[in-house]
């Protein structure tokens, strides 16, 4: 059976203040779901729920039928890389593989480092790497235990535009490979959502609710054909922008004002 990550009627509050409300979502292994929303709409909280780091106040989160547990089935990738600076690149990747025989662990570390093109810096410390390289190490660490799902929290937001595009293509190549994991990708970039997602859900500002679900029609594999040239790209982009803009402008807490007052 294909692994599936499901949220049913999920709500969460911090100290009485609702963060997300009534979220219904489902992702299958091999699929890329993008969660698009303005800052503070609870995107990160959704990922933490999916990782099993926190539990919902209402509703259910299940990974292949059972509540998710950290380190089992889903792996996180963070915007700030979160590499252990006192460990080498190889040791950082190996950190996600505890309790395995040394030979097996070393082989898997070498394999994923080759996959992300970083075999030659296996012995370096993170301080010696560029931002793009650090994020590739973080990606290798997440892929190492062969998770069913990657949970990615604005992972490329700290990279420069060029590195970001390269990493997007890299990610699509890695997950597009046969047996690749499912991806839940959180972003506030409309373009990133359209380039990466098979499906996009748009969240409202806090408390986050799903305001739209959109199937992205571009041909796969998208790392080979640039979706920017697709005729539907501009139209979809405009629609997503409109949704995001309306959501932000409707938010009473927003700093922005409607043009017409």
């Amino acid at each position: 059976m294909t692994a599936r990550l499901t949220l049913a009627g999920v709500s969460l509050a911090f100290a009485g203040a609702p963060v997300v409300q009534g979220i219904d979502l489902s992702v299958a292994r091999g699929e890329v779901l993008v969660i698009l929303g303005p800052s503070g709409c609870g995107k990160t909280s959704l990922l933490r729920l999916m990782a099993g780091l926190i539990r919902p106040d209402a509703g259910q989160v299940t990974l292949s039928g059972a509540p998710p547990r950290p380190g089992e089935g889903a792996a996180m990738v963070f915007q700030s890389y979160r590499l252990l600076p006192w460990k080498t690149v190889a040791q950082n990747v190996a950190f996600a593989l505890p309790g395995r025989p040394a030979a097996e662990r070393e082989a898997r570390v070498a394999e994923v480092l080759r996959l992300v093109g970083l075999a030659r810096v296996a012995g370096s410390f993170p301080a010696a790497l560029s931002g793009g390289m650090k994020q590739r190490v973080a990606l290798a660490r997440a892929l190492a235990p062969r998770p069913d799902f990657l949970l990615m929290d604005e992972p490329f937001a700290a990279l420069d535009a060029q590195a970001r595009e390269l990493m997007q293509a890299e990610l699509l190549r890695l997950v597009g490979a046969t047996g690749g994991p499912g991806v839940v990708f959180v972003t506030h970039s409309v373009d990133e959502a359209l380039v990466l997602g098979d499906r996009v859900v748009v969240l409202s500002p806090r408390p986050g609710r799903i305001v739209a679900r959109i199937d992205v029609p571009f041909p796969v594999p998208r790392w080979q054909a640039d979706p920017h040239d697709h005729p539907a790209y501009a139209e979809l982009r405009h629609r997503l922008w409109q949704l995001l803009r309306d959501a932000v402008l409707k938010d009473p807490a927003s700093d922005f004002h409607r043009p017409e007052g």
Binding site: A51, L53, R69, P70, G71, E72, A75, M76, F78, S80, R82, L84, K87, F95, A96, P98, R141, P145
Partner: peptide, 19 residues
């Protein structure tokens, strides 16, 4: 942030402490 990362990989208290 590093502690959360470690917990997300399934690390227990001892592993978080040591690493």
């Amino acid at each position: 942030e590093l502690v959360e990362m470690a917990i997300a990989t399934g690390a227990g208290r001892g592993r978080v402490l040591a690493h």
